[in-house]
Nucleic acid binder design. Sequence first.
DNA 1: CGTTGGTTTGATGGAGATCAAGCCTCGTGG
DNA 2: CCACGAGGCTTGATCTCCATCAAACCAACG
Lengths: 232, 232
Amino acid sequence: MAGNPLACASCPVRDRAACAALDEDQRGELERFGMHRTLKRGDTLFRAGDDSDHCATLISGALKIAHFDAGGSEHILALVHPAGFIGELFAPVAQHDVIALTDSRLCVFPRRQYEEVMTRFPKLGQALLRRSSEDLFESRALMALLTGRTAQARVAGFLLAMANAASESPCHPAAHFDLPLSRGEIASMLGLTIETVSRQLTKLEKDKIITRNGPRGVDLIDAARLGILATG
Amino acid sequence: MAGNPLACASCPVRDRAACAALDEDQRGELERFGMHRTLKRGDTLFRAGDDSDHCATLISGALKIAHFDAGGSEHILALVHPAGFIGELFAPVAQHDVIALTDSRLCVFPRRQYEEVMTRFPKLGQALLRRSSEDLFESRALMALLTGRTAQARVAGFLLAMANAASESPCHPAAHFDLPLSRGEIASMLGLTIETVSRQLTKLEKDKIITRNGPRGVDLIDAARLGILATG
DNA sequence: CGTTGGTTTGATGGAGATCAAGCCTCGTGG
DNA sequence: CCACGAGGCTTGATCTCCATCAAACCAACG
């Protein structure tokens, strides 16, 4: 858990993360306790069952929140994008594994001290409530994407979500982007197999809806048609 | 949206709902704005797309949070149990439909005034954050139950969840309970069809894991085996 | 007693899992 | 520089579980 001191002044998510609710002096309190940390792809930040004694804000990169079932196979329950908050402030132990999908940078805080700052500055708690509500909405959106939809609709909806996440403007999808997830990770998120994901992607390419640049790169050719497939 | 004045003093969820975080005087503020409301099975509390200008606490009964896809078929994204909080404090419009599964009683508050009380008494905001975190965890648990599991595992896991919800003691399942959902609602929650749900229930009964008392009643005979099936 | 809404049971077909090869890229070492 | 192997990805063949279609059942109620 080694790291370096924070540098909020130059933080790229300074005005989107939860701590943006604080003014400069108040943020200074967090700055004293927080530590910068970097993760390489595959590194684990929190592990299910560990004491939930830290929380964090993602600065750059991407994380997955994953659950491993009895058979040892992984199920991705959510993705975390920059400015996202990670950590259980109420449960005594972490419920899920949190793992870096790509090289990532974070601010990590001791939970006790973070909570103490939150009690002192209620705006921080309200910002976390807002984040939590958004996470809840995202989780339900993912459920709606998964239940009772074909493999084609799931992959299409997933690509749209990734295109939106990759775009800076909130509501228009990026035309070109790299998937932060491997085929296996996509499959474990959508409740499909690697083979089915692969087949659906080749089908989308044959139908001139996307093109692929290597295993990770995607170009959206016909986002509208992709949207139709996603809701089919 | 007619209703009657509140009676917090005799409220059965007085010490589990979000408002339990407030002391008596502070709760008086909410009491002035809140109205009692009753719903009959099938009544809609909030509808997707409506202005999100109210929020509510469930006192008794059960609600479903549902999404209707392009084809008009329903997908249940979450259940709400007594003491649960319903309402979007941050989005301008409601994202999903909220419908009574059984006859229910609630406290309904104008959102503006609820938020104003929350700003004045930060403990209320923290209680909501806690609820929201729990809802998020439940949502992810449901996702874990759905992705990549057989119909048998889904139904088994669902029955266990309902048995736990029906029990007063938090962590031991009730031996006998009534399902608040119809077969069709169970199916739309688990991403299955009515027929498959029905077949799985008959199979569980044949295997001496449950017995059924009419369409809604369930007796758990072998909760342990049910748990094994749920994780299979 | 017929109707209606929910549930169960049966027969069939298809979407996707599973099993099994190939393929492509990249890093390593000869 | 090229062989080699290791991961990850793609493609093909088969099988299985569950959706679909169809009908019977059952209780409640007018």
